[in-house]
Structures are given as C-alpha cells and as structure tokens.
Write a protein that binds this DNA or RNA. Structure first.
Lengths: 359, 359
DNA sequence: TTGTAGGCGTTATCAC
DNA sequence: GTGATAACGCCTACAA
C-alpha cells in the first residue's frame, strides 16, 4: 500500500493532447516529480524549499523534473500541512467612495509584501453577514474589519476562536487591535474654525448611529459648540451619500431657522448639499457655508471648493496590515491602538477667512 | 492504527482556559465531533452537508456536539478533498480611481452570490508580477485579469495549465473570455460631437500604448477625423492621472498651433487639463474645449462640468464574474466576448451645443 | 443507516 | 543525504 496507488502509470504528459481539462494549477503532484527525478518526495520537498540537505546531483534532477512537468506545489496541500493559509481577509461595507478603496489598497500592498494574499468581503446589502464573515475567517490567518460591518458579538466569537483581528475605524472590542483616524478633536477644530468665521447657527448633517466615525465627529462638533456656549441642536439624519445630502439640505433650507453653516458627515454629503443650495438659489458660502470630510477628488473641483478634513486612508490600511502582521508573527502580544492624525483643508466653501486658505 | 492517534485525549474544552492560542478558526476537528456524538466522522460529514442519509437521532447528536464544540469545518481540509477552492481571483493595476474599485465591487458581489470568495491582487508598482499571479492562480479556481497587468505569455501559461481566465478591458488571448466596454465607436462619436461644434484643431491626450482602452479611444478619434478629412497629429503622451494631464496640457498650451479642443484619455487627465487651463488663464470651453472618459464624480462638480463617456463599470465586473462562473460550472465551453455599451454625457466643457445638454 | 478506509498534496520527523 | 511514513482535516466510495 505504498506509492503504487498514488502514482498513475500514465502520469503527466499526454493529457493535454487528449484535450482533457487539467485541474489547476497543473495537476502535477510531488509524487510525479519524485518519480521522474528518481528520488523520494521528501527530497523533492527539501530541494524545493531548501529546508534540508540535498546533494547537488539530486537537486539538479529535481529541478529538471520540475521544469519538465511544470510542477507547481498545491497551496492547499501545503497550507494544510503548514497549518496556515498565508492569507488575510478584509471586511468593508462598500467600495464606492474613494475611502475604502484606498484603505484596501494600502492594506493589500503591505500584506502582499509579507507574502500574504488578501481576501475581500463587502457587506453592503448582504443578507447573512455573520455567515459570510465566518466563512472568510475559515480561509485566512487573520482579518481586518472596517467600520460598522460586523457586530461586536461576531467579532468576539472570532477572537474567542483564536483569530487575530484588527479593527479599523470602529469602536474597540476587547482583544483586538485598533487603527483609526482621529475624529473628535479634528471635528472640534473644524467647528471652531467655522465659529471664528462668526457663524453661530450651525447644523451637523449626518447620522451618528450609522457610523463610528460620524459619531465621533458629531461629538467633536458638540464639544466645540459647548465650549463657545452655542446650542447644538439635533444632528440632521442623513446617510453618507450625495443623494441623502441633497435631500437633507433641501429639508434644512425649508426651515424657518435656517442655519448659517453645515458640518457634513463626509464630502459626498457636502457635495449633495452644495447641489441643493445651488438648486435653491442659495449662495455658498455667502448665505450658507459648509464643510465635508475625507477630501475626495470632487471636493477640490467643486465650486466653491470644499473645506474638508483629509484622512490618511492608505496609511490606515497599511497600518492595519502591519498590526495584523505583528499579531500573526507573534511579535507583539499586547493590544495596540493607533490613532492617525488628520489635516484640516480650508478651501472656499466655509467662507473667506483672512489668514488660512489652501488648495 | 485507527483513530487513536488522531484523537488527542484532552480534546476540546479546557484549552481556552489554559490561555493557549487556539488555531483558527477553532482547532476542533471532525474527529472530536464524531467522538462526542458517538458516531463516525462519515456520519458527521453527511449530517453537516446533507450529502447522505442520516437518522434523526444521529443528526441531533451531531448537531449538539457541533454546537458544544463550536466546530467549524476546515476549509483547507474540505477544499483539498473537494479539489476546489471555492474562490476566484481578480488582478487589477490599481484601485485609486473609481474605475477599478467599481469593477471589483461588481465582481465581488456576483462571486459572493455564487459562494466564492474573492482574492485581489494589485500589480501597481510591483516587481515580480508573474510570480504573484502564479501564486494567486494556485489559490483560486479561476481568475479575472484587468487591463495591462499581465503579459500574454503569462496568461497563456495559466490557460495552458487549465485555469479558467476571463479578461477584462484587455486585448483578447486565445482560450480566455473577454469582457469590455465599447471604446472605438464611442470615441468616434465623441470626436464627431466636437467636430460638430466647429472645432477643427483637435488633440488627443493620452498614450495609446499604456492601456488597451486608450488605444481603442485613440483609434476612434482618428477614424472620426479621417472621415471628416482632418489631420489627427500625434497623440500627446500622457499617463492617466491628474498630474500628467496638467503637465501635458501646459506643454500643449505653449505650442504655436495650439489646438481648439482636447480629447483626453480619461477624466483625471481632463481634470488636470482643466486646472492647467485655469492656471494659464485659458478659458474653457471658450478658448479650449475638452472631454474626458469615465464620468467620475469630480467630472460633474468641475466648472465647467466635464463632457465625458460613462462606462458601466460595476456591470463590467459583474459580467466578468458571471462569465467565470459559467466556465467553472462547465455550463459553456465556447469562448464568450462581451462588449458593453457606453453613454456619451454632454456637459459644458466641450462648449455650448444647441441641442444636447445633460447633467 | 452506519462505519471503515483510502485519497486529496503537502510538510516534517526519524531512522538509516 | 535520503527515504518511509505519519500527520494536516476533510470527503466519499464501499462494505456491512
């Protein structure tokens, strides 16, 4: 019951000519290489990965056999034996805005450098997210989870199961690393900037409960107003897209106590607001000032150009990948919580300000 | 030499309490479940996947054991036995523009519906792309390849190895499906539109050799000019980003025979051109008209708003996923070549036109 | 309906 | 140096 069963007599060569479908990547196994080279599979393995002594002659024959047979080791076989996937996952809500795309890109770049493949999972409009996340968990050595995609309970379950997890722009969970961009202080700063313009009636446009980021921005907004003794009012409910921003702003414009300035949850909302103002003949920033968040490309091209807050999106992804790498390599045991700084970008939409104006 | 060796006596429960790192997802194997349920692993497997008859009692006990042990089958073990990854790959140059992000999103959505995970690979600025692609190939059942990321030779090698491959926005290769957006006729149409404005000195901004899409657009551009007996000149070399568009346009503006209109390779180039015109006090579209391609968000917000061509990006990704699915399911054996229609979006940057203006 | 045993393709441990 | 052989975790004939 040795190799006999595992060595099909018609190994390797004529299958292609018979028009049969080969099974990817090549269907050639280490047994066939070993047979061809006249050595054992152990020697082939050692030769290929340099994991042990191999005579020059044996190595040569193995290399020849590998080339002739176009042998590629099966990742499944290898991963099973090594007990590791050499792959990481990343879960995000969507990819439509530039935000997540950049994060994913930064993540993939670093992961690839570490020799790990990246599996993606978008949860937008998905039914059974927990099941999809569990499936993903079974295919990776660790994963990064963005924003409000996965519940605390499920994350806890993953961590419980021993999976290294890095959270990104999400409320912390015990046992997981966290990477995020600064929000609260930045929002406070931004709001203060508007107050310095002399505006006193400000509205926040965005739903804090929909996104952890927005919640923190709302908090900073309130803090700034509090400090200046201005009443904050309730946030104007709004999802994070242009259409919602447009609709929310139209509602706002119909109010008697119309605000003088809008702090929007992100740039897309602000851009929608810009369109709404335009459609209603309201001058920006003359009658209504506004700010966004993220500094998307359109923010620079809009007229007036959008005052906004720039986040290091790519770097967020890269950091998350590095944190995960440390977890996987066991370099670090204690949790790590990174908060990356943001940058206020003052343009025209918040009104002309004597001192600071950039492009 | 039966199960004895495979059944660690201290199976399953106290490890977590000992503070040991469990191996993800849970480290519990089908053997432990079987032991706990008092059945064989075959019965567990059948019960879990409904692949054969199982008595109600046995099923119940298995389910209980699974729950108590929090058993999750190992994807590696399963994939190895099933000889399939249940995962697809996608290779793209970059994710910075909205174009690829949308394509990937459309792709992931359909792939996930079919129960397949998605592995991504960005080739931008990578050294050994062929090696990375081969590695990816060993982890998936099939893959989609976008644009000019992978050479014909490597693609041929993958196909030779039996891997189902779908090309997206890329010159065709024998044996692979192809999905693309229409380019040539659309470019011809767009150029004709400019000619109808009365412009006769047109320049094409973009390097045809850098991208298959651009090459086709350049071809359509030439065809339109040819038809109207106008000389095309050489394309103005330019990469597909804002900065290059800006630089290329500055060079153009310095020429004595400055063109009256610019057909840019994509929106980012056109937006860069817009900035260059602005920086040089050149009125758009009064002195210089211009068009882009892709209809990115900024194109709508730029002033003047950009005339451009909209591609069904999401749908491109979705189609590619479906084509790949057919290949994997063996539903279809003959190659398939889809070309999706585009839509000309006329805005202000090409000059006011009596009849057609949309937002 | 159930269980045994072989196979999926590696890696790695040990004798030789 | 080299080669059996036992994992790795699952699926699935096949026999009972």
């Amino acid at each position: 019951m040795a190799d006999r069963d595992r060595m099909p007599p018609d190994a390797g060569d004529e299958r292609a000519e018979q028009g049969e479908r080969l099974t990817p990547p090549s269907g050639v196994t280490i047994y066939e290489v070993a047979a061809r080279a006249g050595v054992s599979i152990a020697t082939v393995s050692r030769a290929l990965r340099g994991s042990g002594p191999v005579s020059a002659k044996a190595r040569e024959r193995v290399e020849a056999a590998v080339a002739e047979l176009r042998f590629t080791p099966s990742r499944l076989g290898r991963s099973l034996a090594e007990r590791r996937h050499a792959a990481n996952g990343i879960v995000f809500p969507d990819l439509s805005g530039p935000y997540f795309a950049e994060v994913v890109l930064g993540y993939e770049e670093v992961a690839a450098e570490a020799g790990r493949s990246v599996l993606i999972l978008s949860t937008h409009g998905r039914r059974d997210v927990p099941a999809m996340v569990r499936d993903l968990a079974s295919r990776v050595d660790g994963m990064v989870i963005l924003g409000r995609t996965v519940s605390d309970a499920v994350i806890g379950e993953l961590i419980e199961g021993g999976l290294p997890v890095v959270l990104l722009a999400r409320p912390r969970v015990n046992g997981a690393d966290l990477v995020a961009a600064e929000n609260t202080a930045s929002a406070e700063h931004l709001t203060e900037h508007l107050l310095l313009h002399g505006y006193s009636r400000l509205s926040f446009v965005g739903s804090p409960q929909l996104s952890p980021d927005v919640a923190e921005r709302w908090l900073g907004f309130r803090r700034a107003l509090d400090r200046h003794g201005v009443r904050a009012g309730k946030p104007v409910a709004c999802e994070l897209d242009e259409e919602s921003g447009f609709a929310a702003t139209e509602r706002i414009l119909r109010r008697r106590d119309r605000p003088r300035a809008l702090v929007c949850g992100n740039d897309e909302v602000a851009l929608g607001a810009l369109l709404a103002a335009e459609a209603n003949g309201v001058d920006v920033p003359g009658e209504l000032a506004m700010t966004g968040w993220d500094d998307v490309m359109a923010a620079r091209y809009a007229r007036p150009a959008l005052t906004t807050v720039r986040q290091p999106m790519r770097d967020l992804g890269a950091r998350a990948a590095r944190a995960l790498d440390e977890l996987l390599e066991g370099t670090r045991k204690v949790p790590r919580h990174d908060v990356l700084p943001t940058e206020l970008v003052v343009r025209a939409s918040c009104g002309t300000h004597p001192t600071e104006v950039s492009r």
